[in-house]
């Protein structure tokens, strides 16, 4: 295998900030673990204070009825914003590719895969997560139906299934078992509680409540 050129020489300079100085200084030490000074810098958020001004952009979201004024990196997905920054961990990560549905939330009332959308694309919009579905202590009819019909086992896909199920009825796509199965097929349940989920959605749909 051909030996690669020495990486020490090709330092990428984005600006002459303190942060870059810190990062470059780590190279000089020649070890893979960041030296104490850099750790300290990170802990004291010296570099982050700069980064905030440079890399973060302002964002306003209404999440479960609460107005949030945020400043985030543009690459942050709505899912990771919810889970890692706002600690709303009811919304689940199952694949990061929009293939499993575990991260389903409502944006302005429509179901959206929060892993496939960047948070900054939703400025001014209303987000509802599983934590915002119940009315105080009173469960949403879909949550109650999932409990009654045992529409889950491990519970990990459940928030996504419930958010999708509510939207499925609102869209008018819950008029038969076949139709429910088709319009819920983006939400995978590996435990395989599908028939119970279909029964829960059918019951809520027949209940005719405005959900």
């Amino acid at each position: 295998m051909k030996k690669k050129p020495n990486k020490n020489t090709d330092i990428i300079v984005h600006n002459d900030s303190r942060r870059d100085f810190l990062k470059q200084s780590t190279l000089l030490t020649g070890i893979a673990l960041t030296p104490e000074i850099a750790v300290k810098a990170a802990e004291n958020q010296w570099d982050e204070k700069l980064a905030e001004a440079i890399e973060k952009i302002p964002l306003k979201l209404e999440i479960n009825g609460i107005q949030k004024t945020l400043s985030i990196e543009p690459r942050v997905t709505l899912l990771d914003l919810l889970r890692e920054q706002l600690h709303l961990t009811g919304t689940k990560k199952g694949c990061d590719y929009g293939q499993c549905g575990a991260c389903t939330v409502h944006v302005n009332g429509t179901r959206v895969l929060s892993c496939l959308t960047l948070a900054v694309m939703h400025d001014g919009e209303k987000i509802t997560t599983i934590e915002g579905l119940a009315n105080g202590d009173e469960l949403h009819p879909m949550q109650a139906a999932f409990m009654k019909h045992d529409g889950f086992q491990c519970g990990y896909c459940t928030p996504g299934q419930i958010m999708s199920a509510v939207a499925c009825i609102r869209e008018g796509h819950a008029n038969s078992e076949t139709e429910i199965r088709e319009y819920m097929s983006g939400n995978i349940c590996r435990c395989g509680a599908y028939p119970n989920i279909v029964n829960a959605i059918t019951e809520v749909n027949k209940g005719g409540k405005n959900i």
């Binding site: 942060r19 990062k23 893979a32 673990l33 960041t34 750790v39 990170a42 980064a51």
Partner: peptide, 16 residues
């Protein structure tokens, strides 16, 4: 293992 670029990247504490 070449971890220099990773260590230079913002917020990185360690490459192990």
């Amino acid at each position: 293992v070449d971890s220099k670029a990773a260590l230079r990247s913002p917020g990185v504490l360690a490459v192990i």
